[in-house]
Design a binder for these strands. Structure first.
Lengths: 190, 190
DNA sequence: CCTACCGATCGGTAGG
DNA sequence: CCTACCGATCGGTAGG
């Protein structure tokens, strides 16, 4: 369907621009220029600038949950589970680097009630990793440590690492495993 | 209690607002309101909005170098040196959390030639940590690994960790040591 | 998807 | 530090 395709084009270009310049510094005219149309024409496909941001932020949230939640429910042992979850998280970022950067940085420009919804969702997601660490500690697979600090440190490291990386398809998988292993082996294993 | 020079007051409030809303989403009128004056009055103390951003970004750059460079030149063994450098880095962030957040996120809104200068400086700073890791590997104090990946992972973890933390004076030092130790012990020691 | 246009707000200046 | 104001640009609408 033609309209859908156009809407996707808008979203893709918006992801790029929001990542590069930030949401507030990107004008609808910038976005329209990138697509070779007039700013007014955008509104045939979307109803507001913020709607685009919402689509990116909540769409990525879905992607992250869809990738990581199944892993947390699996029967793997704690270490393998955490490492798999981390790799799943990293894979989502690697495959959607623009959208991920927007997800990580631009969500604060959401208006209410979306802002509150987003924050809640983000807490729930981080909780997945905290729980994995807690489980590992409880079952004596991980050394004893502050699960919240460790989980946050791990997520932080992964998120930031991809910030300034181009992640070419070739070395992408190697880097993902490298990082996931580095973190899990180093920080977690007793 | 001595009152701050107006220029310093402007900078402090700007740091808060730039951090909370982002540089582009913060207007000079927002900033003026926060100080209880008119927007036009700001220009008696500063010459442009971007000048404020420049002051924050390059001022923090100086703070980071001043704190970390001496450590890299010290005679400590590789592990102690890296951990000290990391703690110095973390202390600067903890003591200037608003300005650090701006330094980390808002620099991209600098115009040329400041943008290029900033990027160069940032590379030089990261290089300090890469070199520390390389030294440790060369002297067989650290396990063999990709120094650039490790250094970046460490910095990433530290930077992000303070993002959403209030860092109350009380638990600040504990957290700094906790994080620095976690990273160095876990990722680096052979 | 375009032309034509809106009110609001932007960073900044003039002049006191 | 204020009043008064500037041209530019913003997100968005009307109507075809």
């Amino acid at each position: 369907m033609k309209t859908l395709a156009r809407k996707d084009q808008i979203r893709l270009k918006a992801q790029m621009l929001f990542r590069e310049r930030g949401y507030s510094a990107t004008s609808m005219r910038d976005l329209a220029d990138e697509l070779g149309i007039e700013a007014a024409s955008l509104y045939n496909h979307i109803s507001s600038k913020e709607e685009i941001l919402q689509g990116i932020c909540f769409g990525m949230a879905e992607s992250f949950f869809a990738a990581v939640e199944p892993v947390t429910l699996s029967a793997l042992d704690p270490k393998a589970k955490l490492q798999s979850a981390l790799e799943a998280h990293l894979r989502v970022i690697a495959e959607n680097s623009d959208a991920s950067a927007v997800f990580l940085h631009e969500w604060r420009h959401l208006g209410e009630p979306f802002l509150s919804d987003f924050k809640l969702m983000r807490r729930r997601y981080e909780k997945l990793f905290v729980t994995l660490v807690e489980e590992g500690i409880a079952r004596d697979s991980f050394k004893k440590m502050d699960a919240r600090v460790v989980a946050r440190t791990i997520l932080s490291a992964t998120n930031w690492t991809f910030e300034s990386q181009k992640t070419s398809k070739s070395d992408g998988d190697a880097t993902i495993q490298q990082i996931a292993e580095l973190l899990v082996e180093g920080l977690i294993r007793r």
